[in-house]
C-alpha cells in the first residue's frame, strides 16, 4: 500500500466513524427520549397506552394510599388536574404528600398511570417548619425557601 493510499484509508475510516456516530445519535434521539408533562398538559383523548413519559407535579394531599408494603397509589397534581398513579417498589425518602415529585412510566389505561420510577426533588434549601415561622415573623423571609 502506498503512503497516500494509507492516509486516504485513514481519513475514510474517520468519516465512517463520524457518520455512524451521527446516525446513532439521530436514531436514539427519536427512540430514547421521554417527554415531560404536567398533569394539566395531558389530554385524556391523546393518551398513548404504554408509551413511556414523565410527569411532574406535586403529590396531592390525602391521596396517598399504601396498598401493601411495596405497592402504593397516589395522585400527582398541578392544582388544575390530577392523575392517579400506581407504583410498586420503594419510594424515595423525600417522597411525601404536598412535595414535588417526578414520575416515569406509562398509562396502562386512560385513567391509571403505572410508574416505574419515582423521583423526589431534593435541595439544599429546605427549611424546618418552626424556623420558617420565625423568619416570616421577623420579615426575614426569602422566597427561595419552600
Amino acid at each position: 500500500m502506498s503512503l497516500r493510499f494509507q492516509r486516504l484509508l485513514l481519513i475514510l475510516l474517520t468519516l465512517v466513524i463520524i457518520l455512524s456516530a451521527v446516525l446513532l445519535i439521530l436514531y436514539n434521539t427519536r427512540e430514547n427520549v421521554s417527554y415531560f408533562y404536567t398533569p394539566s398538559e395531558i389530554d385524556k383523548s391523546d393518551i398513548i397506552i404504554n408509551k413511556i413519559i414523565r410527569i411532574g407535579g406535586f403529590v396531592e394531599n390525602n391521596s396517598f394510599n399504601k396498598i401493601s408494603s411495596s405497592s402504593f397509589k397516589f395522585k400527582i397534581t398541578d392544582e388544575k388536574a390530577s392523575i392517579l398513579v400506581t407504583f410498586k417498589g420503594i419510594l424515595p425518602d423525600l417522597f411525601r404528600e404536598g412535595q414535588g415529585a417526578v414520575i416515569e412510566g406509562a398509562f396502562v389505561d386512560k385513567n391509571i398511570f403505572n410508574a416505574t420510577n419515582v423521583f423526589a426533588k431534593h435541595d439544599e434549601n429546605y427549611m424546618p417548619a418552626s424556623i420558617k415561622e420565625d423568619l416570616k415573623d421577623t420579615g426575614y423571609w426569602n422566597k427561595k425557601y419552600k
Binding site: I17, S20, A21, L24, I25, N28, T29, E31, N32, V33, S34, Y35, F36, Y37, R54, E104
Partner: peptide, 21 residues
C-alpha cells in the same frame, strides 16, 4: 417549548458503541 428528558438508554446506545472501536 416542550420538556423532555434524555435518560440512560440514549447514552448507553450512543456513547458505548462509539467507544467500542
Amino acid at each position: 417549548n416542550k420538556r423532555i428528558s434524555v435518560g440512560g438508554p440514549y447514552f448507553n446506545s450512543t456513547v458505548i458503541p462509539i467507544m467500542i472501536p
